[in-house]
Amino acid sequence: MKRLLAIALLAMPMATVAAAQDFSVDLGIGVTGKPVYPGAEDAEAAPWLIWRNARFGAAGEGDKQGFSVSPSFNMVGERKAEDDAALKDMKDIERAYELGAKVSYGAGPMTAYGSLRKGFEGHSGITGEIGAKYRTDLSDRITLWSGLELGYGDSDYNSTYFGVSPAEAIDSVYGEYKPGGGINSAAIKFQARYAINDRTAILGEVEYGKLIGDAGDSPVVQEEWQPSLRLGVVRRFSFGF
């Protein structure tokens, strides 16, 4: 059932662009400095698997203009009680994989977007983002983006990462907590890309976010402000249909 749902989620954006002949995406790897878990006070270094600029139609350097629909993928790392003293006697959460779709609208240097994804393994909820970003070309090789983004999670998603179950309330120092669904984060984001050649680039990102709503009120959250830093290398892959 999970496999069929994953295929259906990926098929949605493909069906809307059946006339497209090409698909391209930037894939890469790097390192990220981020909170140990969502809401942690301490930070850690971890691998960064990069999925960016998935698009149908001819590949290009500029942000796509007008409306576009593309697949959306994300991976959330596992959370273990041994990762942080604040998680003592809390249940472990497996690595989660998220599949869904992203809708964007580009107008000149501005792009607005919204995404929605279904989780598998670590969580089974619905999550996504809405936001907008502004592109600045400093040269033929250097491009900057700055933007604002709001994160969303339904009650299943928020309960997984910010809730305290009755069993956990008995074992841990936290009282039972069941968050509802809704906007759970707000962030300012900056991204820089240096093109080594037509297909390969160095990518850097800085994000300064805050957990809000029921997520921010969670007793598991030790720090509402959640900064992160990422640096990696990406390569554009193109596929014809």
Rank of each mutant, 00 (worst) to 15 (best):
I93F: 09
G100H: 01
S104C: 01
G108Y: 03
L87T: 05
E82P: 00
P71W: 01
I93P: 05
F67R: 01
V103R: 00
V103D: 00
V103N: 01
S68E: 10
F67H: 02
S104N: 12
V103H: 00
A107E: 09
V103C: 05
L87H: 07
V103I: 14
A86M: 10
R95N: 12
A101M: 12
D89W: 04
A86Q: 09
G66Y: 05
M90R: 08
E94H: 11
R79T: 12
D92Q: 08
K91M: 08
Q65A: 02
A96P: 04
K102P: 02
Y105L: 10
A86E: 10
F67K: 01
M110E: 12
G108D: 10
M75W: 07
K102R: 15
T111E: 15
K91A: 13
G106V: 06
A81P: 08
V69K: 06
D83T: 02
M110H: 04
A81H: 13
D92C: 07
A96K: 03
M90Y: 06
K102M: 08
F73H: 03
A107T: 10
F67Y: 13
E82T: 15
G77Q: 05
S72K: 11
E98G: 00
G108R: 11
D89Y: 11
K102A: 09
V103M: 08
T111D: 05
G77S: 14
K88Y: 10
V69D: 12
E94A: 09
G100S: 10
Q65N: 00
S72V: 07
A96E: 14
P71D: 06
G108C: 06
A81E: 15
G77T: 10
A107Q: 08
E98P: 00
S68D: 10
Y105T: 14
E94M: 03
A101N: 10
T111R: 12
E94G: 07
K88E: 14
A107V: 14
K102V: 13
M90Q: 12
D84Y: 07
Y105E: 10
F73L: 11
D89F: 13
S70T: 13
P71M: 04
D89K: 14
S70E: 14
P109I: 00
E78P: 01
M110I: 15
D84K: 08
F67Q: 02
K88T: 10
K88L: 11
K88I: 10
